[in-house]
Amino acid sequence: MDAIVLIQGMNILYTVLALALVMMGLAIVMGLLNVLNIVHGEFIMIGAFTAYAVQAAGWPYILSVPAVFLVCGALGLVVERLLIRPLRYDPFDTLLATWGLGLLLRKFVEMFFGRAFRSVQVPLPGSLQIAGHSYPTYRIMIMAISAALLVSLVIWFRKTRTGSRIRAMVGNPTLAEAVGISTVALARNTFVAGTILAGFAGVVIAPLVPIEPQMGITLVVNAFFMIIIGGLGTVVGLIGGATMIGGIQSAVSAVFDPTTAYLSILALSVLFLWRWPRGIFPRV
């Protein structure tokens, strides 16, 4: 009995943290900049393909991390300059423009890599012993990475100069500009940070999922709903949304089946979009 509880608990924790990792970049871009960045899923996909390309070139897995910083960073800069900024960070217009961009990137990757499923080898195979039970090492690694990122995000947002500048910009862009904060550059950097985080999440999850050009769609749709349920623009909302969705997904999957779990998440999203479009933990 103990073993089942422990393993189930670990599974739920893993689901929650993996979800938080996947949605973190979107939470920043959507919560702080109001950009409904539906191309987030494609950035994750590109991150995963970067890991695949690094492996195909015969380089060690860890090199995908600097590679994805370059690829997704450059992509983020270009997208911000050509799409997001001309649309003045408007939620509705950016949703449409990034929808089109998603279409474009999926086809682009498809031209290079084809539609076949690819895979990346797990960099840390084997398992660790936790209280006498074994648990896959790489999963524990993902949990650690996600938790570390979440903590540093909170500290970065609450304690650093950049964090307080961003809060100033989100609160009142005109005043922030008036006290000498370059909101254009700050918004650009924040957006690029979000795309790099998305690409990084793609690198991290690459060994565990089938990699193909369409993989981003489901991820991004779920991440959207999570952020909506959790509430925009707060770290508590991010964790809350991930916990709620991750918890429900694991619990309902364990009791019923994954389809029912997915359905209940969708139903919950519909309920929130209908009654509480600002989520559980809205930014005041």
Binding site: F92, L95, F225, I228, V270, L273
Partner: peptide, 11 residues
């Protein structure tokens, strides 16, 4: 705003 669009997508 976009919340109705997302709602139709979820439905």
């Amino acid at each position: 705003g976009p919340s109705f669009s997302l709602l139709t997508l979820a439905l």
